[in-house]
Write a protein that binds this DNA or RNA. Structure first.
Length: 454
DNA sequence: TTTCAGTCAATAGA
DNA sequence: TCTATTGACTGAAA
């Protein structure tokens, strides 16, 4: 069974041998066959040549303002009438949904893993490429051309690029009807949760963001869902709530005084997420969390949802659920316990931001932090360590790799005098938050109960 | 084993 | 046709 549906990760022509060392995150049954591509027509945009692989670039990249980058990318794409799909597949090596997600909810840089930073570095490289639009337009044309060719029978189906129509269900032409049939059967229908089901899960989440196996099974049976669906829902919900909090932080910063600075993402986040994984909600942090005013209520309030129509299974399940469901009935979300996830998420970003901002004020005050890629060989300034923010004590990205001849990283915003005032304000805020965190940590260490006023 | 980050891809809605 | 949402999945970390 060979289905080539996956997108070929983009080569930026940085250093092909080092490219794509990350394993493909998905090993779907329809993983790309060796040498097989579904999108040959979508050649990646060429970036200035450099001996560096994208991962080296990511590792050496200074802190990027993810919010500003995505904002800019959105603008450019919109202004030039270029779609997320084209951009994602040819520039980032991601699908449209992922691109949409990234563009609308970028995480702050310091919250991203190396892998998570990669798309942002790619975006930045793309933004710095003076021919980026042209190249993407060319690609669009090529795609259209390929589509027309295939449509008018000049090419056999499946042999051409990721053009409209061919993109979905890009099944291997070698597939027999029997295989196709079994492929269709193997395809699981997507579960669509009804509004009531989601509402019930949300309520359950408020009660117990990390439900026990027993709770999961109970929920699953009451809602007539598979336990895996419930588990997945909780995972996804926690993860998305966390990101929501981060986004709010970023946007706060954006509107707060000066341009965005992802290094100071949120002012409502007291503890680190790294800790929070260790400090399970049922543990100490949860105890402390209940002492902290819940700042992230938005997502917990039941938004009006109209969905889940169609699918018979869903509607059956749905009506059954209505009849039997009452996981935590009569609960008032407003009175519900603090959501440890929101707390945890916000906590972490705060501490992280403190680490960055307080320890490196210049980084904190570089909202326009930009990495510019110079096509001009500049062995003298690889990743400029002499930049203003290099005075920041030991940020791991300020190292000086001697073998980075083609890149210079420019931080224009650091020269902006207007930033002083906002920096000061930001630092004051950070200091205040730092104080709060410090007290929280002490309280947590002593296991003592404190009443807080923020 | 559990949780997470990151992503895919189906689907809904504009 | 495009974008946003979201259930499911993988691999990594703890």
């Amino acid at each position: 069974l060979v289905i080539s549906k996956s997108i070929k990760p983009v080569s930026l022509t940085l250093e092909s041998s080092k490219e794509n060392q990350y394993p493909h995150p998905h090993s779907h049954p329809h993983t790309e066959p060796p040498g097989g591509k579904c999108t040959p027509g979508l050649q990646p945009v060429q970036q200035p040549h450099t001996p560096l692989g994208i991962q080296e670039l990511v590792a050496m990249s200074p802190e990027l303002d993810t919010y500003a980058i995505t904002k800019r990318v959105k603008e450019v794409l919109t202004d030039n009438n270029l779609g997320q799909r084209l951009f994602g597949e040819s520039i980032l090596g991601l699908t449209q949904g992922s691109v949409s997600d990234l563009l609308s909810r970028p995480k702050p840089w310091h919250k991203l893993s190396l892998k998570g930073r990669e798309p942002f570095v790619r975006m930045q490289l793309w933004l710095n490429d003076p021919y980026n639009i042209d190249k993407l337009r060319d690609m669009k044309k090529m795609e259209k051309k390929a589509y027309l060719k295939r449509r008018y029978g000049l090419l056999s189906p499946g042999s051409d690029s990721d053009s409209p129509g061919a993109r979905s269900d890009c099944v291997s032409p070698a597939m027999t009807p029997l295989e196709l049939c079994s492929f269709n059967q193997a395809k699981k229908p997507r579960v669509v949760l009804a509004a009531e089901e989601k509402e019930a899960l949300r309520k359950a989440y408020l009660q117990e963001p990390y439900p026990s196996q027993h709770t999961i099974e109970m929920l699953a049976s009451q809602l007539h869902l598979k336990t895996n669906t419930v588990i997945n829902w909780f995972h996804n919900y926690r993860s998305r709530m966390r990101r929501e909090v981060l986004m709010e932080g970023l946007q706060d910063n954006d509107t707060d005084a000066e341009p965005t600075n992802c290094s100071t993402p949120t002012s409502h986040s007291p503890v680190s997420e790294g800790d929070d994984r260790k400090q399970h909600p049922r543990g100490r942090s949860h105890h402390v969390a209940t002492r902290v005013r819940q700042l992230n209520v938005k997502q917990e309030t039941a938004e009006p949802e109209v969905e889940g129509s169609g699918d018979e299974e869903t509607s059956n399940r749905h009506s059954k659920a209505k009849a039997s469901l009452a996981p935590h009935d009569g609960e008032d979300p407003a009175k519900s316990p603090v959501d440890p996830v929101s707390f945890k998420a916000s906590s972490e970003s705060c501490r992280s931001s403190l680490e960055v901002s307080l320890n490196s004020p210049s980084a904190a005050s570089s909202p326009g932090l930009m990495m510019s890629v110079s096509p001009i060989p500049s062995s003298s300034a690889p990743i400029s360590p002499s930049l203003p923010n290099s005075s920041a004590p030991s940020t791991n990205h300020s190292m000086e790799p001697p073998s980075v001849p083609n890149y210079s990283l420019d931080l224009p915003a650091l020269h902006n005098p207007k930033l002083n005032k906002s920096t000061q304000r930001r630092n004051e805020k950070m200091a205040n938050l730092n104080n709060i965190i410090h007290r929280l940590e002490r309280a947590a260490n002593r296991e003592e109960t404190l009443e807080w006023e923020f």
